[in-house]
């Protein structure tokens, strides 16, 4: 444990990604025939400022959905509420709503193995 704490200090700082709630619920939206759910993204990764939103069924097939931005620009330590809309006819197949960090920058001469994070919430049945 002491080694890990030391490593955290030596490596600068920790970068975290948080996507809640774990079990969101689809509710009727203000548009007829469209369901929606509200997700919250918290970016505590200094090295990432873009996250991609995606929606899948239980077999990890992509399900059509709409948000204000599918690639969300979010600053370090910023929290954003993201409303995800799906068609009412897809409501039974929608299973996972995910956010994934997009890594875009490397400097000249770097030899890096960069962790990319994806968190998937499961729609409440």
């Amino acid at each position: 444990m002491r080694f890990l704490m030391l490593l955290s200090f030596v490596s600068g700082c920790s970068f975290a990604h948080q996507w809640t709630p774990t079990y969101p619920e689809l509710t009727p939206s203000y548009v007829d025939g469209v369901m929606s759910t509200m997700m919250v993204l918290l970016n505590k990764r200094k090295d990432v400022s873009f996250y991609e939103i995606s929606v899948y069924d239980k077999d990890w097939n992509a399900v059509p959905f709409v948000t204000t931005d599918k690639i969300v620009n979010i600053n370090y330590l910023e929290r954003k509420r993201i409303e995800v809309f799906v068609r009412k006819k897809d409501r039974l197949s929608v299973t996972y709503v995910c956010s994934k960090s997009k890594i875009i920058s490397t400097r000249n001469g770097d030899r890096l193995a960069i962790p990319s994070s994806r968190i998937c919430s499961k729609i409440k049945e």
Binding site: S11, S14, A16, T20, T22, K44, R111, L112, A113, S117
Partner: peptide, 15 residues
Amino acid sequence: ESKCVITTDATGVYG
């Protein structure tokens, strides 16, 4: 509330 937070404590470097 139930949640999972992924934290990068150290970025990897290739030797």
